[in-house]
Simulated scan of single mutants.
Amino acid sequence: MGHDRIKGNLDLLLLSVLSAGPAHGYNIIAALKARSEGEFDLAEGTVYPALHGLEAAGLVESVWQTVEGRRRRVYRLSDAGVRELADQRVQWRRFSSAIDGVLGSPA
């Protein structure tokens, strides 16, 4: 899938992954890849700046934890992030439905 398409929807994807529970960056990247059946194999350089932006916007919170003997930043949705995810899901479904309507079924 084109990087531009993912970039425009990365916040929604990250919020959705974090709705399953707190996770550190590597687990978030792995979940995106697994849940998309390999379509979203994103680099750390793409995901971490987006997570930092979500944190700056108050949608994600993070803490340092020791996981498997390594110190890692663990991210979780804030209350505002939960609300934003719900709103973005509604918007995405409306947009997706409109795209499907335009594309229709193959002739």
Rank of each mutant, 00 (worst) to 15 (best):
M1A: 13
H3A: 10
D4C: 03
N9F: 02
N9M: 06
S16H: 10
A20Q: 09
A20P: 00
G21T: 01
G21L: 04
P22R: 11
P22N: 08
P22K: 11
G25I: 12
G25N: 10
G25M: 09
I28D: 00
I29V: 12
L32N: 01
K33C: 13
K33A: 11
R35G: 08
S36C: 06
E37V: 06
F40C: 13
D41P: 02
A43C: 08
E44K: 10
G45Y: 01
T46Q: 14
Y48Q: 09
Y48E: 14
A50R: 05
H52C: 14
G53A: 13
A56Q: 11
L59A: 09
L59C: 08
V63D: 15
Q65D: 15
Q65L: 06
T66I: 09
V67R: 15
V67E: 15
V67I: 15
E68W: 03
G69D: 09
R70C: 01
R71Y: 04
R72H: 05
R73S: 10
R73N: 09
R76W: 01
D79F: 03
D79R: 06
A80M: 08
A80V: 02
R83E: 15
E84A: 07
A86R: 06
R93I: 14
R93F: 13
R94L: 14
S96I: 13
S96T: 14
I99F: 05
D100G: 11
L103C: 08
L103Q: 08
S105W: 12
